[in-house]
Simulated assay, not measured.
Amino acid sequence: MVEFGGWDMPVQYPAGTVEEHLRTRTVAGLFDVSHMGEIDVRGADAIPFVNRITSNDVTKLVDGQAQYSTLTTPEGTVVDDLLVYRFTEDRLLLVVNAGTTDKDWEWIRSHHEDERVELRNASAEYCQIALQGPEAIPILQKLTETPLEEIKYYHFSEGEVEGVPAIISRTGYTGEDGFEVYAAPDKAEQLWNKILNAGGYGKPEGVLPCGLAARNTLRLEAGMALYGHEITEETTLLEANLGWICKLNKGDFIGRERLAQQKEEGVKRKLVGFEMTERGIARDDQDVLVDGQKVGRVTSGSPAPFLKKNIGMAYVPVEHTGEGQDIQIDVRGRAIGAKIVKTPFYKRQRQ
């Protein structure tokens, strides 16, 4: 167990990180992510308010749809990344990272102007259990009458799971299909155990409970950003390859002016993926070298259990971002060879 965002979290369960990772890719993994924060936004101006403080276009959402977005600073850097859920025109739910929930809550409250909205930090009102993997639908369908196949990717439905009122969201942080189930926190243990049972936990091809380490290696293989690593208050959305959630034409939002300027001028550094070409594992915060000179920093580095490679992400100057570019990673004083590759490293086969 480790402390994470004010919570005690398991790094891994008895099966171990590699097996948890592989089972999620091939069957299903179960993650307790109840540490995530939830902020409830209600009122006639819920959509214009959230649209002004986030980078994606909230006006494009329909009821029952979610979007990936960020809270941005005036410099176009990232306060946090989040999911925006639209229930109705006047009710949104923002799901934020555990370690930044208090910061995000203060940021959102401090940027509330004259919009007609009611804000509530609802983090204590939800548990969140994520079932991820190719067998997620058949496993979860045993416990709910909600037709899961009908929920599109990044959409959600309100229903019941094992008789417990829940938000069933087709979202996740692993690169696999799957669902994140939000419910009352006192129902977390019941839901956890029922999903494990429904997924045949204990059998060779059954669902496995997964810890923080597998969650990290899965999202890294899928090329997904982690707050505090790939995205921070020092990195802009354009540098982080998140231009696709940066809607400069939607109207004004915090950071828009700086991001529009950066888009016109061009970024000087960019986030890239790399794989090791020599024996060695890149780790977070190690230096990236080109011809022996430091040019950047590893944001995330790890073995990739499913791909059987050692991979990572790093910020480097744009002139060194070409696919196939040779780089070196300073691994404890030794320059180990690597090359820049396209991301995501892993992409699941669509059905």
Rank of each mutant, 00 (worst) to 15 (best):
Q325M: 12
G64N: 07
V341N: 02
A304V: 10
D284Q: 14
T343D: 04
T54L: 11
G266M: 07
I195P: 05
M1R: 09
M224T: 10
L148D: 02
T146G: 04
L30R: 07
K263E: 14
I245L: 15
W244T: 09
D63H: 14
D104Y: 08
E89L: 09
K142V: 08
T277H: 00
K250H: 04
F87V: 08
V117A: 12
V164A: 07
K103T: 14
N197E: 11
A222L: 10
A314E: 05
L307P: 05
Q351K: 14
V79N: 06
K60V: 13
L83T: 14
V58D: 06
D177I: 15
R283A: 15
L131T: 06
E234N: 07
T299P: 01
V96R: 03
V50H: 00
D186W: 05
T174V: 11
R91L: 09
A98I: 12
T24S: 01
G178C: 10
K309P: 04
T24K: 00
M36F: 13
G172E: 06
T88Y: 06
C210W: 05
A15K: 13
P48N: 10
T144I: 11
T144S: 13
P209L: 04
I139A: 05
G200Q: 08
L22F: 01
R116K: 15
E278R: 10
K294C: 04
I231V: 15
E150L: 15
P344W: 02
V161Q: 09
S110I: 09
H320S: 01
Y68N: 04
E38L: 04
A184G: 06
A136L: 01
Y346E: 03
L196R: 01
Q12V: 00
K308Y: 03
L92F: 08
I231P: 04
V62A: 15
E221H: 02
V316W: 02
A282R: 09
V272W: 02
P138D: 10
L131G: 08
A214Q: 00
C246G: 03
H229F: 10
N216G: 13
R269I: 13
D326G: 08
A122G: 00
I281G: 00
E278L: 05
P10D: 09
